[in-house]
Design a protein around this nucleic acid. Structure first.
Length: 697
DNA sequence: GTTAGGG
DNA sequence: CCCTAAC
């Protein structure tokens, strides 16, 4: 009997470590497959002898790009899997928010080479549960000590469905189409209501204290060995946060969402940072799934695997002549749309659109993009992953009541395009019925704030595919945040254009809550016929190998992914608005009068009507002004600020700094002696009396 | 909600 | 422009 043990190394985390690790890991795997074209016959042997070190080095976070042989040439595979979950109270599984709260990010690294696996397994099994093993599998039969594992498996997977899924994923789907269908459903999980057993056992695992305890201790042991899997320390966490802020704020935001989804609705205990320890402790409660992905070489050599490997994606994509972008139409829906009262004008309609979740395919796109891989890589054996529950922002659209139906559709289309890319067609529903006459005005069509606040609906349908706009890459690719990541992907983080088209009136608007109407939620808003779905991609029957230049697909994918994410999830950054000279003037003036510690007052006095300037903006601008004033003119960039203004900046800065120091001093003095000091100007400040003396200016 | 400061 | 801490 063929002996093959399987090692799994599974860590589940929220926050950033998972991502950090995955990115690092994926990057290194890629690096290896790229740079190690020349390997030799002694691989297996070498690996046996240095297996532990190999692996340890491999997933170590800190640099050290050592290349263990056993990771070369796609023989080792990383698998990240996550699935749709519902809540424990399965009855509520239709609840949008419930489902949202269960995003799971899970990483499974699977070592597949038999020659290497044993050594590594010895090291890695600490962190893994031996689930997902089919007793009848010739691959696994021998290497398991049946009882415990079986019991555990039963407990976790009472129907065996998951086991089947994994088994089939491992061994290929061709033998039992029916079973495979089930499994495909399970794995792809487009259905927001996954099978109950699947859900339940995971929750059991996550919440069960016994397992938690066990896992945690396992994890601790594991983390001693592998730096990458260490429990994030405060410092580490902080470092990663730092890493992900600023230029990488977008990802940080996204990851925060993960965190939110992961824990937001389920474990109040973990909402607060105070419970940091417990929080992290529970992060390592684990894990359920691993999937082996096809070996790159065997895909090309085995016709059977061709059926569900590489060619699948190629066929599915090219078959429909679709740009990868169009995959999205199948998974983006308007979850709810309604009219909202405009804060000031009754003649203006404000349309609120809440999008359905982006299901896991979109998330896959994101990760592909994140790792700089192409869609085809998904099927060619490098990594496999999915993540659930991305959110795209709500959309607010203002239109005058006198606007036409057509213009509303167009406006929505533009806004949505800004969010997720082009090539969409927007339909308008009123009371569930399509409004077709584009030429009528909204009030003629019966759309007004007065009566039907909730009767409005939209459909998003795939429209004529447009060529993705070219991207400019002004900033470094996000991937560079991880030194191991491939750097050849020219991803762009250019400022998205969303704000231009979408009035940012979120904060001003009273939200109509609890107005969800489940009946309209699942309006067939996406074409059932044209759209490639994730399922169709995995489905054997859908596979009609069509030769297509892979490079095109890759290119398109990269672009689409980038755009989609930069424009949806990542599109909330305020657009950059350089300060004009007159604004600077006003700011300087105000600070001269008010001082540097009362930015709210500055805002109120000088920028009251400038909605796009917050007091934080002003404070930041002052900061940069001071800096600009201090450096030499040659070092300055951008629109030159008149030297006269900069001089005033310096004077005011110095004055108020001194003023503040004096205040501090007097405070201390006051404290020590208990007597008020006449130098205490706090009261004067508050009234705006104090200001930079004219003489000093 | 504001302010201060690092990025 | 963002984020967080501290207030």
């Amino acid at each position: 009997m063929r002996r093959r043990s399987q090692s799994k190394w599974t860590v589940q985390e929220s926050q950033f470590c998972a991502f950090e690790m995955l990115a690092s890991l994926a990057g290194k795997l890629l690096q290896e497959s790229e740079s190690s074209a020349s390997s030799n016959a002694s691989e297996g042997h070498e690996c046996d002898s240095i297996g532990k070190n190999c692996f340890k080095q491999e997933i170590q976070y800190d640099d050290k790009p050592l290349k263990p042989k056993c990771f070369e040439q796609g023989r080792c595979e990383a698998s990240v899997a996550a699935s749709e979950l519902t809540t424990e109270n399965g009855d509520d599984s239709k609840d949008f928010r419930c489902a949202e709260n269960n995003a799971i990010l899970e990483c499974t690294l699977t070592k597949t080479d038999p020659a290497c696996s044993e050594e590594i397994n010895g090291d890695l099994k600490y962190g893994s549960f031996p689930g997902n093993v089919d007793d009848h599998s010739p691959y696994f039969g021998e290497s398991y000590n049946g009882k415990t594992e079986n019991a555990f498996k039963q407990e976790r997977d009472p129907t065996g469905l998951e086991t089947q899924a994994l088994n089939i994923a491992n061994n290929g789907p061709s033998k039992d189409p029916v079973k495979f269908d089930r499994v495909v459903k399970l794995l792809s999980c487009r259905d927001p209501v996954p099978s109950v057993p699947f859900t339940r056992h995971r929750n059991d695992i996550k919440l069960g204290s016994r397992d938690d305890e066990e896992n945690f201790s396992r994890f601790k042991r594991l983390s001693k060995r592998f730096k990458a899997s260490r429990p994030p320390t405060r410092t580490g966490d902080r470092r990663i946060r730092k890493l992900l802020t600023s230029k990488y704020w977008k990802v940080a935001t996204k990851l925060k969402d993960f965190e939110h989804y992961r824990f937001g609705g389920k474990r109040p205990l973990f909402r607060k940072r105070k419970t940091y320890y417990n929080y992290h402790r529970y992060q390592y409660d684990m894990l359920y799934k691993q999937r082996k992905i096809f070996d790159r070489k065997s895909i090309t050599s085995s016709p059977e695997k061709d059926m569900n490997g590489d060619k699948c994606s190629t066929a599915a994509m090219s078959d429909r002549g679709a740009s990868p972008l169009q995959f999205l139409w199948d998974i983006i829906r308007v979850y709810r749309s309604s009219l909202i009262k405009h804060p000031t004008s009754s003649r203006i309609l404000v349309v609120q659109m809440v999008f359905d979740r982006l299901l896991h395919f979109t998330c896959i796109y994101f990760l592909l993009w994140f790792w700089g891989m192409s869609y085809l890589d998904l099927f060619s054996g490098t990594v496999k992953f999915s993540i659930k529950s991305f959110r795209i922002p709500e959309l607010y659209i203002e239109v005058p009541e006198s606007a036409t139906v057509g213009s509303l559709k167009r406006t929505v289309m533009e806004a949505v395009t800004a969010l997720i890319g082009g090539g969409i067609r927007v339909g308008l529903l009123l009371q569930g019925k399509k409004v077709r006459d584009d030429s009528r005005t909204l009030s003629q069509a019966g759309i007004s704030c007065d009566d039907n606040l909730d009767a409005l609906g939209f459909t998003l349908e795939p429209g004529p595919a447009k060529a993705p706009p070219t991207m400019c890459s002004e900033e470094l690719p996000l991937l560079l945040a991880y030194d191991a990541a491939p750097q050849n992907l020219t991803s762009s983080l250019a400022t998205p254009a969303v704000n231009a088209g979408v009035p940012n009136c979120t904060s001003n608007l009273p939200l109509l809550t609890n107005s969800e109407n489940p009946a309209t939620d699942h309006e067939p808003v996406s074409s059932k016929t044209d759209m490639p779905t994730d399922q169709s991609l995995l489905e054997p029957r859908a596979l009609v190998p069509v030769p297509v230049p892979a490079t095109n697909v890759e290119a398109l994918t990269a672009v689409a992914v980038n755009q989609n994410f930069q424009k949806s999830e990542l599109a909330q950054r305020r657009i950059w608005r350089p300060f004009s000279i007159s604004e600077v003037e006003a700011l300087v003036q105000a600070v001269e009068e008010i001082g540097t510690g009362r930015w709210r007052d500055v805002k109120l006095r000088a920028f009251e009507s400038a909605d796009h300037r917050t007091y934080v903006n002003l404070k930041d601008k002052w900061k940069t002004l001071v800096h600009t004033a201090k450096i030499s003119p040659q070092q300055r960039r951008g629109d030159p600020v008149p030297q006269e203004l900069l001089d005033r900046v310096l004077v005011a800065h110095a004055y108020w700094a001194q003023h503040q120091a004096k205040k501090q001093q007097s405070k201390h003095h006051h404290h020590r002696h208990g007597t008020p000091s006449i130098t205490d100007t706090t009261e004067a400040d508050r009234k705006g009396v104090a200001r930079v003396p004219i003489g000093t200016m």
